[in-house]
Structure formats: structure tokens, C-alpha cells
């Protein structure tokens, strides 16, 4: 893939700006590190930026983070593309990240993944037509004894069954977030 082909999906139309409160939070996170070591805050800031600016990191968002940390944009791209939690392209409103690793597979993650694909009529990596859900598979999330499981936002949903997946999808769709 050449850079230009995917450029558009990686851009925001406007320059993102943190609210005053968020900016204060970010400044306090930066000040947790010793003088001159502000770059250490980058991962945490990227998590916040992703949350604030639509669930993904556009080029504009990353450039903005570079500006806040006074580093080169490439340093942010390098970091953001290394850590798999960061989405570098737009996603659906909710991202289902289903664990596909061994221990979860032993207890049936394959069939949960197939079921979600069927139910949302998408493949892994795609977003449902209504724009609500993106399905991703991820590696072990540290919930191996409670599998099959998926993460959506900060929340872990464990001991998944088909019924539970139905409930989850309905709950997220209706806007009442599942517990």
C-alpha cells in the first residue's frame, strides 16, 4: 500500500483541540515525570486523545500530540503504530476486540468470533453497516480463565456465550451500556 492511497482515511478534517479541563489533566500527567522527561507521557496522552477525538488517531491528532510534547510528528507516528491498542483509522462507534489467543480458543473463542461476524454481517476488521460496531481480534487480554471474552472501550466482557453476545449488541445499540 502506498502512503497516498491510505492518506484520506487517516485524516481529520479539522484540527483537534483539547478542552481546557483535558489540557489541564494532560499537563498534570506530564508533570508526573521529572523535568525534561515529558515524552514519557506520550502513551497516556494518546489514549486520552483517542477517546476525545472519535476513537482513533488521525494524522492531525498525532501532530497535535507532537506539538503538545514538543517532539517531531514522526516520533508520535512511530509510537502510535507500534502499540496495537491505537486505531490509526476510523472505527465504528463501538469496537469489539475479541481475544483469539490459545486459552480463550480452548474454551470456544473461535465460535464466538464466527457468531459475531454472522450476527453483524461483517468480517474481522470491518465495521457494521450502521456504523455501530467494528470487530477486531486481539491477543491475550489477561482474562484467560474467564473466556471467551471481549473488550469494548475500557470494559471487559467475560464468559461470553451466544446469548450474552446478543444481549451485548442490543445493549450497546440501544445506548444503555452493559454492565
Amino acid at each position: 500500500m502506498s502512503n497516498t492511497e491510505i492518506d484520506i482515511r487517516k485524516r481529520h478534517s479539522e484540527k483537534p483541540v483539547f478542552s481546557i479541563e483535558k489540557m489541564a489533566e494532560i499537563q498534570s500527567l506530564i508533570s508526573q515525570f521529572p523535568e525534561g522527561k515529558h515524552k514519557s507521557a506520550i502513551i497516556r496522552i494518546l489514549h486520552i486523545a483517542e477517546e476525545e477525538f472519535g476513537g482513533w488517531l488521525s494524522i492531525e491528532t498525532m501532530d497535535y500530540v507532537a506539538e503538545i510534547l514538543s517532539i517531531e510528528p514522526i516520533e508520535v507516528y512511530e509510537v502510535a503504530s507500534f502499540y496495537t491498542m491505537f486505531n490509526l483509522e476510523p472505527t465504528g462507534k463501538f469496537v469489539f476486540e475479541v481475544c483469539r489467543t490459545g486459552p480463550c480458543m480452548l474454551v470456544g473463542s473461535d465460535s464466538i468470533i464466527s457468531y459475531i461476524q454472522e450476527k453483524l454481517d461483517i468480517k474481522v476488521g470491518e465495521t457494521s453497516k450502521d456504523g455501530f460496531f467494528t470487530l477486531k481480534t486481539v491477543e491475550c487480554l489477561g482474562a484467560c480463565g474467564y473466556g471467551p471474552m471481549l473488550q469494548c472501550g475500557k470494559k471487559y466482557h467475560e464468559h461470553l456465550t451466544k446469548e450474552k453476545v446478543d444481549e451485548l449488541i442490543a445493549a450497546y445499540r440501544s445506548g444503555e451500556f452493559p454492565k
Binding site: 522527561k37 515524552k39 514519557s40 507521557a41 506520550i42 502513551i43 494518546l46 489514549h47 510534547l69 509510537v79 502510535a80 507500534f82 502499540y83 496495537t84 491498542m85 491505537f86 486481539v138 491477543e139 491475550c140
Partner: peptide, 18 residues
């Protein structure tokens, strides 16, 4: 940010350095 390798101690240090 999602990287098993950051459990290795020197990778973890690099990550802590941003």
C-alpha cells in the same frame, strides 16, 4: 498501549521513556 514485548524489562523501560 498493547504490546506484549513491553513485559520484557528493557522494552518496558523504553516504553516508559515514551
Amino acid at each position: 498501549g498493547g504490546a506484549y514485548i513491553c513485559g520484557e524489562e528493557t522494552a518496558m523501560i523504553e516504553s516508559l521513556e515514551g
